[in-house]
């Protein structure tokens, strides 16, 4: 008996596998998905290989959930192949949406990264280098790295986005149901999130207070029920798309922004930079000169040890994407 169900594929490029785990966390809802969809390609869960995908007719997969960034030539080849075979390609998870955590590596060039892994780090292990000084790694030779980490949509056409690191299973289920319905939402819609910020779902109270300085989240035990940011912890909830139900602040951890930048028109890191800047107010004497004010703000922000990782942990591939100008000359 063959019942014709639309085919679904799930694939990982530069990914940690957590997005597949989020899919498995659908638990009993998986039975419904199995009823409505045929999982035709998913190397994480099924014994399906690239050759199987190549053998499929173009456009024969109804929906592909592609998680992971594009870091290597092989990632890009697979993304292109899946685009060819799929009627809808969905950027699934933060890595696919904005480069995710792997895009933090864009601070360094591909050559610097390889030299760090293959030279500096490997030298910490005795006997890794041959007598001639060359390093012969046991690592499987990866396909050449792309010069930087890309979000999927930068190099391949993407129809929809499901954000989150990883997406919350309930939101993922909503999104998969939406993808199975007709009519489909407009192309480009971000599924499985709200159009409001994480703060909107957060149970913590805002008391209209601006801390004089930020603190590391490990340095204080935050007061119950009071906004973490107002207590000086760099919580990025106000610049982040809602959808997770404010998971992290609910359990005393600051939001690190995994659902992506709320403002679609902003440079991602800039949106959170503005939001964080508006929240801090050191005690500024009057009158105060240029230098005094600068030093006061430097001190107030000194707890932000890594501005990029704090402000834009998941959307890094999109920060200066597409730049053609001279400033690119500085870029590693």
């Amino acid at each position: 008996m063959t019942v014709s169900r639309p085919a679904m594929a799930i694939y990982w490029t530069g990914s940690c596998g957590g997005c597949e785990v989020a899919f498995l966390n659908l638990d009993e809802a998986l039975l419904g998905i199995g009823r409505d969809w045929e999982l035709s390609f998913c190397p994480c869960l099924l014994d399906t290989k690239r050759a199987d995908l190549e053998a499929m007719a173009d456009g024969s997969i109804a929906v592909t959930l592609l998680n992971g960034c594009l870091r290597s030539g092989e990632n890009l080849e697979m993304a292109r192949l899946l685009r060819l075979k799929s009627r809808l390609l969905v950027a699934f998870g933060s890595c696919a949406d904005g480069g995710g955590v792997p895009a933090l590596a864009n601070e360094a060039s591909a050559a610097q990264l390889l030299s760090r892994i293959c030279d500096t780090a490997a030298d910490a292990v005795p006997g890794q280098r041959g007598d001639d000084g060359t390093f012969s790694p046991e690592l499987p030779a990866p396909s050449p790295l792309l010069p930087r980490v890309h979000a999927v949509a930068e190099l391949v056409d993407v129809d929809y986005v499901i954000p989150g690191c990883p997406p919350e299973p309930d939101r993922l289920l909503d999104a998969i149901r939406t993808l199975g319905m007709s009519p489909l939402p407009p192309r480009g819609t971000v599924l499985g999130c709200t159009s409001r910020s994480v703060c909107d779902d957060c149970p913590r109270e805002k008391r209209n207070h601006r801390p004089q300085r930020l603190v590391r989240s490990c340095a204080i035990i935050p007061e119950e029920g009071w906004c973490l940011l107002e207590q000086g912890i760099a919580c990025m909830g106000m610049a982040t798309r809602g959808g997770c139900g404010a998971l992290c602040p609910t359990v005393h951890a600051p939001c690190t922004g995994c659902y992506g930048t709320l403002d679609p028109d902003a440079v991602p890191v800039a949106a959170s930079l503005s939001a964080l800047s508006a929240a801090v107010l050191p005690d500024i004497p009057h009158p105060a000169d240029d230098r005094t004010v600068r030093e006061l703000y430097r001190a107030a922000l000194s707890a932000v040890a890594d501005p990029l990782g704090t402000l834009c942990r998941y959307d890094g591939a999109r920060n200066l994407a597409g730049g053609t100008g001279q400033s690119g000359a500085d870029r590693g």
Binding site: S274, L276, S277, A278, V293, R294, L301, D330
Partner: peptide, 29 residues
């Protein structure tokens, strides 16, 4: 400082500038 027509816009601008100074090198600028 103290002269902003909107009270504290210039202070927020300073705050952003201090963060931008440290962020720009991370973006390769």
């Amino acid at each position: 400082p103290g002269d902003c027509h909107y009270q504290s816009g210039n202070l927020q601008a300073q705050c952003r500038a201090v963060l931008l100074d440290r962020l720009l090198p991370q973006l390769g600028i």
